[in-house]
Amino acid sequence: MKAVFGEHKASTRMVSGAYRNFKNQEGRNPRLLVAKMGQDGHDRGAKVIATGLPLRLPSRRSMQTYTVSGSARLPQDTRRWSQSFIKELRKLNRPDILVICGGVIPPQDYEFLYQSGVCAIFGPGTRIPQAAVDVVDNIEKSLENIRQAM
Rank of each mutant, 00 (worst) to 15 (best):
M1D: 12
M1E: 13
K2H: 09
K2D: 09
A3K: 14
V4S: 13
F5L: 14
F5R: 13
E7T: 13
E7W: 06
E7R: 13
H8Y: 14
K9P: 04
A10V: 12
S11L: 09
S11R: 01
T12I: 11
T12V: 14
R13W: 06
M14D: 06
V15W: 00
V15N: 05
V15T: 02
G17E: 05
R20D: 15
R20G: 11
R20Y: 13
N21M: 15
N21D: 12
N21E: 11
K23T: 14
K23L: 12
K23C: 13
N24K: 15
N24Y: 11
Q25G: 13
Q25V: 13
Q25I: 14
E26T: 01
E26L: 06
R28K: 12
N29G: 06
P30N: 02
P30I: 07
R31D: 00
R31H: 02
L32N: 00
L33T: 03
M37I: 08
G38T: 03
Q39R: 13
Q39V: 15
D40W: 10
G41W: 14
H42I: 03
D43V: 12
G45T: 04
G45K: 00
K47N: 05
K47V: 05
P54K: 00
R56H: 02
P58F: 07
S59Y: 04
R60P: 01
R60V: 03
S62C: 09
Q64N: 09
G70Y: 02
S71F: 04
R73G: 06
L74C: 04
Q76N: 05
D77L: 01
D77F: 03
D77V: 02
T78S: 06
T78A: 07
T78Q: 00
R79N: 01
W81P: 00
S82G: 03
S82P: 06
S84H: 09
F85S: 10
I86A: 15
K87Q: 15
K87N: 14
E88A: 15
L89P: 08
L92V: 14
L92F: 15
N93V: 02
P95H: 04
P95V: 03
P95Y: 05
P95W: 10
V99D: 03
I100W: 00
C101P: 00
G102E: 01
G102V: 00
G103N: 03
I105R: 04
P106K: 14
P107G: 02
D109P: 04
D109T: 10
Y110P: 03
Y110C: 01
E111I: 10
F112C: 12
Q115W: 07
S116Y: 08
S116I: 09
V118N: 04
V118M: 08
C119H: 10
A120W: 06
A120Y: 08
A120F: 11
I121E: 06
F122I: 09
G123E: 10
P124V: 14
G125S: 00
G125T: 01
T126R: 13
T126N: 05
P129R: 10
A131V: 11
A131H: 01
A132G: 04
V133L: 08
V133H: 07
D134F: 08
D134R: 06
V135A: 03
V135F: 05
V136C: 03
V136L: 00
D137Y: 07
E140N: 11
E140K: 11
K141D: 04
S142Q: 09
S142D: 08
L143M: 09
E144N: 11
E144A: 13
E144D: 08
A149P: 04
A149E: 11
M150K: 07
